[in-house]
Amino acid sequence: MKFRGIMIDAGPMREFTNIVTTISKLSKECVLRLSDDKLYFIVSEDNSGPAPPVLWCEIPQVVFFSEYQMIGIDEEHKDIYLSVISANLAKSLVTLKSAKSLKIKLTKKQCPCLTLEIEMQSVISQQSRQVTHDIPVVVVPRKMWSDFHEPKVQTPDISIELPTLKQLRTTIDRMRTMAQEVVIRASAEGKLTLQIKTDMAKVSTRFKDLRVEAFEGPIDHSDSETESVAIEDISKLCHCRVDAKKFSMFLSADNISHNRTICSIVHKKLVILCLYTQENVKLQCFITGIVY
């Protein structure tokens, strides 16, 4: 098993740092999967045993690395799966935002390590410094790879573009102080509603004029406690109840500069937030719906 990569462009280095920082906020541990053409960051829910990933991030190596070499275990198992404490990786990468280059490789010290060699340009002189971090990793055995496959999800009933994540997060954070769960509603007419309901209050924030990417309606509402929204055609409306804290955490991905974000909903079951960046990174978060 071998892995070695070099990054020299400022943009991708900044983005890489932001991605890792975001992941470290979401989870203690993550799995870094290396393949020929892509790097993957995969997060499964903490302490819940084998479960489908909650975060799936694909990074095309061509855009990020000027040099990229890797050899997997054998011909049939070409990939490398490494489990790493995400905070360790995030802390080591803090200086990367102002670095000249990053060399990243898989090394064998006392234990397997990801070794990061960051070259920093000195502010006052022509000389540069080199900072080396050894981050212990665990090589994930082949038989456990299947735990980290891309989640197979049902075709979403609707995919709708999200308003700015910062705005969305501010609102969710206010709602979170009042209730634990938030209902996300999206309609084929480009409306998105966030709603909480408690004994004290019912608060709904409505966004409109959002672009609908796909709609697989009509939605079957026959089994629901139909709260008749008389004006709207409810067959074009789909909703999902999720944990407000989780939703807010995923929205912290707003510090990764992104082109667009899409929210997909499988009616009552699942919310998928998908973020695309300039550097062709695709980051997906899966939040399972709460059903009573």
Binding site: Q167, D199, V203, S204, T205, R206, K208, D209
Partner: peptide, 12 residues
């Protein structure tokens, strides 16, 4: 600043 969003609250 943004006209495509609004919030309504019903407070008991």
């Amino acid at each position: 600043s943004v006209h495509t969003v609004m919030t309504d609250c019903e407070i008991a």
